[in-house]
Amino acid sequence: MVDLNTAMAAAAGERQKRLADEGKERKKRRSGSDLGIEPFDPVKHVSKEKAETVSMWLVIAFSVVISLLMRYVLMPRTTVEKSDILYLAPLSAILVIPQLHRMVLPESLNEIYTKGTWFKAGFLHTFTFLAMALLLVNPPMGDIVAPQLADKWVLVQDENGELNFSNTKGANSALTWEVESGSRLTGDIWLLFGLADNVNVEGANVTVELTNNAGTDLAISNDLGFWDSNMDAINNNTTSKSGKSRLVPHGDLDQKFALLLGSDLSVGEHEITVTIVEQGDPWENTRVYEWSLKVVEKLPVQTAS
């Protein structure tokens, strides 16, 4: 015998299950429009793809023209100190991209474009301009960087043919040389280094200025005779463990410099200023290195009393 309450509960559960199944069936039968999905239109899709392709090539062509104007019109009329305009002006051209589309393309294409189109066009213009700028300002299209120190520099003490080498130093560094008490850094003191460039390193004008207590003197011109005469000694004292020269690591591609700073340098600080000037394309490229030589007396050895 079935209890009345049990029968009613079973009937209610069966009814809820049936309603749930009917709800699922109705969801399956709903159309795309009922679910908020737009019907796929092949013709409209093809038109949109064509419009996006036309926009892409228009933006690329626009960016290339802007880059060429920057390099060959604006850049020669701009100094290095005011070079920020070379990037700000072309990148600000993003603002005219929508108007460019309206001026050049027909209305049938413009009505397809949305805010997303301008967003993608802005990114495309930015990266196209940056890529073109790198190509146009670097060799062989341009040269905006002066030659730089190939690797290290070194000082050589020449005492009647006996050579003493200092430690090799980097681009921005100081060198300390100890001498006996009451003495000087005797002999001829030579500065050796190499310059590297990606175009024509020999086209640079290099001057070396020595400043000390005695005043300021311009070093004499490059004397490669000293380098050639002492090639073996220089190689033995400036070659790394890997077998590469610390002065001219790129071999014949680097320009060698051997400059006589003076003779019998006194105790004190000697400032060495290397100025490199090169006529680049389109600017005059300049680079300055400042090195320091400190000649100090050795401390006297104290004997135990």
Rank of each mutant, 00 (worst) to 15 (best):
H125E: 09
T207F: 08
N167C: 15
F257E: 05
F129D: 04
N285P: 12
T114M: 06
Q16R: 14
P140T: 04
L88S: 15
P106A: 09
K120L: 09
I66C: 07
L259Y: 01
T275Q: 14
L253Q: 10
S67C: 00
N198T: 08
T176D: 12
I94L: 05
H45A: 15
K152F: 05
V104S: 11
S183A: 09
I97L: 07
L195W: 02
E284L: 10
I112T: 13
L149P: 06
A258I: 05
N235W: 05
T114N: 14
T79V: 13
V80C: 15
G225R: 15
T239I: 02
P76R: 06
G215L: 07
E111D: 14
K50N: 09
L191D: 07
D158Q: 04
A150I: 02
V54S: 01
R184P: 00
L293E: 08
A10G: 12
V201A: 00
L247F: 05
D254E: 03
D34A: 08
K44F: 05
A7V: 07
N236H: 05
P249Y: 02
L163N: 10
G251T: 03
G243P: 03
N235R: 12
E284G: 08
Q255Y: 05
K48Q: 06
S242G: 10
S67N: 03
G268D: 06
K169W: 11
N172S: 15
N237Q: 13
F193N: 00
